[in-house]
Computed example of a mutant assay.
Amino acid sequence: MKKLVLAAALTAAASSASAGSLADPIIEAPVIVEEANSSSAGILIPLLLIAVVAAAVAID
């Protein structure tokens, strides 16, 4: 009889065991690192475009 009670208790303990909790996992947001651009980069491309257009006009 003791073995039956022991087997029943172990079965009940094993079936109710849980590997985790019922709470939702907390997922942290990834860190995004942006490199800073220099302030002259915004004006450099238009100046090069004007120089190319001026050179094309001067050739004609």
Results as ranks from 00 to 15, higher is better:
K3E: 02
G42N: 12
I43D: 14
A51R: 03
L4E: 14
A12I: 12
V53Y: 11
V52K: 08
A56V: 11
A23V: 15
A13W: 07
L6Y: 04
A12W: 11
I32Y: 05
I32R: 05
E34D: 07
V57C: 11
A41T: 11
L6C: 02
S16G: 15
S18I: 04
V31F: 14
A12N: 05
G20Y: 02
A55P: 06
T11I: 00
L6D: 10
E34H: 10
D60M: 09
L44Q: 15
V52W: 12
L49K: 08
A56G: 10
E35D: 13
A56R: 09
I59H: 12
L44V: 12
I27S: 02
L22T: 06
N37E: 14
A19D: 04
A54Y: 06
S38R: 08
I27M: 01
A29L: 03
I50H: 06
P25I: 11
A36E: 15
A19W: 01
E28H: 09
L22K: 02
P25K: 13
A51T: 04
S16M: 12
I59C: 14
I26R: 07
A23G: 12
A13Q: 04
P30L: 01
A36P: 11
A56N: 10
A36L: 14
S21M: 07
A56L: 11
K3N: 02
S18E: 04
V57R: 03
V57E: 06
L10W: 03
S16A: 13
I26Y: 02
L6R: 01
I27H: 01
V53R: 09
V57G: 09
M1G: 05
V52N: 12
I59S: 13
T11N: 02
S16V: 13
I32L: 03
T11W: 00
A17W: 05
A41S: 08
I32H: 00
D24C: 06
A58E: 08
V53D: 11
M1D: 02
I43H: 13
I50C: 05
I59P: 10
T11C: 02
E34T: 09
I50P: 11
A19G: 08
V31K: 09
S21F: 07
T11H: 04
L49M: 11
A41L: 08
E35K: 15
A17T: 08
A36C: 11
S21K: 10
A13V: 10
I50L: 12
K2G: 15
A29F: 01
V5T: 00
S15P: 08
P30F: 05
I32M: 04
I32P: 01
L48H: 00
V53H: 12
L22R: 06
N37Q: 14
I43G: 15
L4P: 13
G20W: 01
P25Q: 14
G42T: 03
G42P: 03
S38T: 03
